[in-house]
Structure formats: C-alpha cells, structure tokens
Amino acid sequence: MTASIPVLHLSGLSRRFGGITVLSDLDFEIRKGEILGILGPNGAGKSTLFNLISGVLPPSAGAIIYKGTDITRMKPWDRCQAGIGRTYQIPKPFSHMTVFENTLLAAVHGARLSSAQARTRSMDVLHRTGLAPLAAQTAGTLRLLDLKRLELARALAGDPEVLLLDEIAGGLTEAECHSLVDMVMAIRDEGRTIVWVEHVMTALRRACSRLAVIYGGGILTSGTPAEVLADPQLKAVYLGADDAE
C-alpha cells in the first residue's frame, strides 16, 4: 500500500546550462517504499536530476515537493537532514579522513546522532557494506570498488528516507552485483525509498519495481521493468532508431 504514496514529486522541473537544456518540464512522482530505476544514455540528465533533488544544483524552473513540502530552495544539508541521501557516480571521498570518519560525519551531521550513537551507526553501515576491515584506512587510498561502497555506506549512515544511488554497480562481477542487489532490496525493506540510476540492466531488472527512461530532457517511458525493457523506444535511444526497427 505504501508504494502508491508519492514521497517525492517533481513538478515542471527544468535545468539549463547556458543554451543547453538538459531537463525540460519534468513531471514525475517517486512513491514511498519503491525502488525506481532510472535509465538513459550518457548525457541524458540522470546525474543532473540527482543534483537537482539533492540540492547541489538549483533548477532553472519547476518545483521539488518532498513529503508535501516544497524543498526547491532548500540547501543540500537541510535536504540531507530531512531524509534525502545520495551517492556520487564519481566517488567523492574525504580523502584525508579514515573510512570510519567518512561515515561518522554522515551519522553526526546527516542523521544528527549523538557522538556515541553515530559511532555505533558508522560501524553498523561499515559492517553492512563490507568495509569494516578497512575502517582505519585513509579513504584516499581505497580502490575504486571500495570507494563506491564507501559512497553507499556514507549515504546509509545519514539514515535517508529517500536514497539516490548513482551507478554503484558499475565494474562489479556478477556475484558482487547479485550481493549488491540483495543489499539494496534489504535497504528498501527497511522502509526507505530508492531511486537508482544504473546501466547494469540485470541489477535493475531484479531490484526495481518500476523503471523510467530519461531522454531528450524528459521521461521517455516508464512502467514495470518487463514493460520498459520490452519497449522499442528504449532500444531506439540506446542503439539508434534503425537498429530498433
């Protein structure tokens, strides 16, 4: 039942960079408790969408409604504390801090926990994401896959209601990808809503209750994974119109 309640509503959302319009008049709802997969070719505006929702970028027009409140002008840190967490496609670790301190920061400032609670939460998410053995290691020395896990761990440490995942499955082996999907589904089962930008179709097909394809600045198509992946429009935007026919 909770999956039908909109937790995030994007209304007429647009973003222009000079003369280039990346997102145009986007109208979309994200429902509570769902895992929504976002697809689209490179440059379609998927990461821009995350930057708009998380407050890193202001929209050129439109509004973002979160749990009935207009958060369009809210600062990124206020959105995080309100329950919107995110990862970055290109990891942005706090390189001179330890892995533990990276998650501690999110627990202290994002989830606004006391020092003792934040330490416990940090270790919990590090265990969950398999980073606990690296807790004392400086984040700048991690390999790429561990940096991606750290992105997820930090976002979780902030205790988000809506979690924006930006291409966290890239470069994983099949077994690792399978474990990651299990973890994402377990995170959803805790009552969180997940929006997942990804190119790894097998991960999205298994995890998502709904898929949406961004193309040309708007939503090209959306529906269940089976519906969207069978849609000829998806093949057209990825492979070109001739190949899709």
């Binding site: 407050g55 840190w77 942005k92 920061l105 994002g110 989830a111």
Partner: peptide, 25 residues
C-alpha cells in the same frame, strides 16, 4: 568536536560534505 569533523570534510570535498548534512555557511 563534531564541528571539527565537518571542517575536515569541507577541506577534502565541499560538495560531498554539504550533501551529507554539513551546513557549509
């Protein structure tokens, strides 16, 4: 303190710090 860890995060990556709840201003 908690302000110190925020400062160190700003030092390393301002955008990520703000997305994780650090009030930059």
């Amino acid at each position: 303190s908690r302000h110190g860890i925020a400062l160190m995060a700003i030092r390393d990556n301002e955008e990520a710090a703000s997305s994780l709840g650090v009030n930059l201003i």
